[in-house]
């Protein structure tokens, strides 16, 4: 029997991330195809209860220590590398999220094994694996074959439905001793919470979201007028926040918020995977972007390949007409 397929379970602030279940669903398929066991690996403090909810895995290895209470890449990668060296899994799936991102880079470096990054699907092919990955900000898809195993695979959110990764079965749960480094040069002192007081974009039914294509803060009025007409608020992609056009509380995506409004209008947003992750579950997505090949049109329901600065004023007039 080939070595196990591992899923690194992601816990943060006392709960398991949804993406953990997505990875379990993917890992289950790989393990079944190669006749291997599926093992979830969980680092945390007081996490026995969480371990038992990972029933799609054949076995859950958990290391319980105050040192693992918070996800710190330097700490987790050392512990996981030591555990992997002992247990010899062949495939290690790590979620690409802000919680686990440092692990995606550090774990293969420590183990001296290949990384397959930005992966959206993995299939067992013969004795090996073939991964489908999104590169160049979602502009290209590659099929990639790791030349050796073990291999660490960074998996994008949304690779499988989280529901497919849940099970009522109780897995075999095994406490393991993973070394918690005394010092690793990096210490988490605490968390800074986002500033309150601004609009909560996760509670809005309509979001008009702006990206780099807005070109400048001076054009924000257009988005605000449209949002107001539609009874919603303005949100943003990362570049618009980085340029200081909107506060971080309005950011949609990996470092920002996950939103599920009834309507999401994406203005001048290219649709990089980090942004799409935050808005793909909106009920209706209308995207406006000058580039007809922009990845945002892969998730939008309706697309308009026009310059937003020319199109939005016309749309505002039409909406006003409609409402009167």
């Amino acid at each position: 029997m080939p070595g196990a397929v591992w899923v690194i379970a992601e816990q943060w602030r006392g709960g398991l991330s949804e993406v953990t279940y997505e990875l379990l669903a993917l890992g289950r398929q790989i393990a079944d195809d190669r006749g291997a066991a599926l093992e979830a690996v969980l680092l945390g403090s007081g996490v026995v209860g969480l371990a038992e909810s990972l029933g799609l895995a054949d076995r859950v290895l958990y290391a319980d220590s105050p040192a693992f209470a918070e996800p710190v890449g330097e700490v987790g990668s050392r512990a996981l590398a030591a555990l992997a060296t002992e247990r010899k899994p062949t495939v290690v799936l790590v979620p690409i999220t802000n919680v686990s991102w440092d692990l995606v880079g550090l774990l293969p470096a420590r183990l001296g094994v290949p990384l397959v990054n930005f992966c959206m699907d993995v299939a067992a092919v013969g004795d090996g694996l073939e991964a489908r990955c999104l590169v160049f900000g979602g502009k290209m898809e590659v099929r990639a074959v790791p030349e050796s195993e073990p291999v660490v695979i960074g998996v994008l959110p949304g690779a499988r439905r989280a529901d497919a990764g849940r099970s009522t079965k109780r897995p075999e749960v095994e406490p393991v001793a993973a070394p918690a480094p005394e010092t690793c040069g990096v210490r988490l002192l605490g968390y800074e919470e986002p500033e309150a007081g601004d609009i909560d974009i996760t509670q809005q039914e309509v979001l008009v979201s702006v990206g780099r294509g807005l070109q400048g803060q001076a054009n924000l009025d257009l988005a605000e007028e449209l949002a107001e007409l539609l009874g919603g608020a303005v949100s943003a992609s990362r570049p618009a926040v980085d340029m200081g056009w909107l506060p971080m509380t309005r950011q949609v995506g990996k470092s920002g918020m996950l939103v599920k409004p009834k309507l999401y209008i994406a203005l001048g947003i290219s649709g990089a995977p980090e942004h799409v992750e935050g808005m793909k579950d909106a009920a209706l997505i209308v995207a406006v972007n000058t580039d007809p090949g922009a990845p945002i049109f892969n998730v939008a329901h309706y697309g308009v390949a026009e310059d937003l600065l020319e199109f939005v004023p016309v749309l505002i007039d039409k909406v006003k007409e409609h409402k009167s």
Binding site: N98, G185, V186, L188, L189, Y191, E192
Partner: peptide, 12 residues
């Protein structure tokens, strides 16, 4: 970290 939360770290 996600949701606008930031972790404060000390580094050697």
């Amino acid at each position: 970290y996600p949701g606008g939360v930031r972790g404060s770290f000390e580094l050697d």
